[in-house]
Design a protein around this nucleic acid. Sequence first.
DNA 1: TCTGGGGTCCTAGGACCC
DNA 2: TCTGGGGTCCTAGGACCC
Length: 357
Amino acid sequence: MKIIGHLDMDAFFAAVEERANPKLKGLPIVVGADPKEGQGRGVVSTANYKAREYGICSALPISTAWRLSEEAKRQGKPEAVFVSVNFKNYSEVSKNIIKILEKYSGRVLQTSIDEAYFDLSPAENFKKAGEIAKKIKSEIRKREHLTASIGIGPNKLIAKIASDFQKPDGLTVITKERAENFLEPLPVRKIPGIGPKTEEYFKKRGIEKIIDLKKYSREELTEMLGKWGAELYEKTRGRGSTDLAEVRERKSIGEQTTFETDSLNFETVWESLQELSTGVFRRFQKKGFKSFQAVTVTIRFSDFETHTRSQTLRKPANSLKAIEMKSLKLLMSFFDRRENPRRKLIRLVGVRIEKLG
DNA sequence: TCTGGGGTCCTAGGACCC
DNA sequence: TCTGGGGTCCTAGGACCC
């Protein structure tokens, strides 16, 4: 019998920052872009649970987070502490967490900086698997002074949804027999792959909970969502993969940047694009790739309309010059009057290389 | 409210080939 | 003159995830 665990660190970036700086203890913490007194352009990466009480959450515009913190301050509550993202630190901690997992499971599949699946099948039953999860959580707490939430289920889908079920510091064990019943009352949004658009699409049709989705046949769901519909049909019934061996190879390397102030000055945009190209090329080399054969340039206008232009090269290339020359050509096409007749300002520029060899 | 940066996967039309 | 079916590649856009 397959028993799969999913570990998800609680408010990971914020928790690491809180741990690193005792002065932050107990305060609302917002990790993300520089708020610049409410004028900053980025978003919140992670807010700790204290900050969430103010309505601050991941992906919220940092300017809104700033406003919410100011509001709280006016009500006599502590203002939020804004901290910039320190990826290097988090990666170090992440490695330690994975090492702990590997002590308790023979197969660990890390899927992001703060999430991993692990195999607990040797535990034989879900009860014993739950005991192991408790040990993992307490070791993470003891050694790293951080809390994690763990979900255990008969496959990756159930484990992942279960890890989110009692956050933070949660442990949820769902047996194979209970999996379908566990899913039914949950909002459709809990299924990985259903985002804001699909949620809205379903809501318009009166579908809000997973049980509502189960009224539709595989064919009907395929009609609505294409290939993804057939997958969703299986998911709503608690069925999913248990494969923890998948190796996913990198398919592209890219960088993008949002300007402090929008611009339609070619020099400004081209200079940024060169810097981004340099960064992309450095990472391309560092990762040990030998070639790339496609370049994509992204432009986002001030109204957030986003366009891409890409070109496949006649043969594989491997130089910074090649990225720069191709991206220059693609960028110029965006500056063609016909492409942008209303002379909209540019907010973001990005470059990505694909078809890596 | 005014929306980052790093990615992956899917779709769809057109070109081209057999 | 009107016309197939299948497959792959290229390009652009969009949804989604962390």
